[in-house]
Design a protein around this nucleic acid. Structure first.
Lengths: 135, 135
DNA sequence: CTCTCAATAGTAATGATTACTGTTACTATT
DNA sequence: AATAGTAACAGTAATCATTACTATTGAGAG
């Protein structure tokens, strides 16, 4: 039940945070590794994993683990919705004014205590929509 | 965009389907492997993976890949909701009378075509609720 | 400045899943 | 019933994302 947290703001974490803030592509750990290595060539992939985990535990960034074997990360910590392209796996942001109504009182929760939910929309990204066979 | 489908109902698939129908525990592929091996000791783990994938592609069962590195499978193909225990990873069913309202017309879908959604509730299972430090 | 321990680089290990390869067995058609 | 075509199989190797380990470094409090 305990999650890793950020105790010290190192150069590695500062740069990861900066790079994540520049994009809206919700990169994977490996993609973040590539982005950060441009500025800090000696950084280790393990460090990227650990720091992404710690920073999402501290609420500085968001971890998207809704689907797929590969986790993705979002530099915007504010709650918002995501769409995942069923063809290529890309993830985009969704802007919504009205709040989503989620039913939380169940007829039979089977003894579970329901505290939240995880969700993502699915669909097709602009590219795959244009040419579904491209990928 | 193409998914594997069931063309032939083999003994392996029949038994996997039977065993999945007996439980409500949403077992992982490995757990299904253990359940099926009691009745068919020579079955291969690869076959279990392939058959679970094919049968979920054909709508005979449900594949739960909403979260976690390990997929889980549900013998009940009818749409219903799930809760995942944040402490131990167990997954349970949720019964709801009223339908969930999901907003699908977004102010800015960013060029995406939204066709559906994936969601699961999160919380604590009866055991972990009783003793959060047990696991 | 110094001390402490969180964080790091580099690498090995893990674990779930997928791919491959030669063989088996459904199903339809002679 | 024999044959052909091919989906599915068992067994095993390979892949890929992630986590763990170990010795070393450096952030930041006092």
């Amino acid at each position: 039940m305990s999650r890793p947290e950020v105790k010290r703001m190192t150069q590695q974490r500062r740069i990861i945070l900066e790079e994540l803030g520049k994009v809206t592509s919700h990169p994977t750990a490996d993609e973040v590794y590539g982005m950060v290595r441009v500025h800090l060539p000696s950084i280790s992939l393990g460090t990227v994993y650990r720091d992404l985990e710690a920073m999402s535990g501290s609420g500085l960034i968001q971890k998207l683990e809704t689907c797929g074997r590969q986790k993705r990360f979002d530099g915007n910590p504010a709650p918002h919705h995501h769409v995942r392209c069923l063809a290529c796996g890309r993830v985009g942001d969704l802007q919504t004014d009205t709040e989503l109504y989620i039913k939380a009182d169940f007829d039979d929760p089977g003894g579970y205590k329901v505290t939240g939910y995880r969700m993502e929309y699915t669909g097709l990204c602009p590219d795959c929509r244009r040419d579904p066979l491209a990928i």
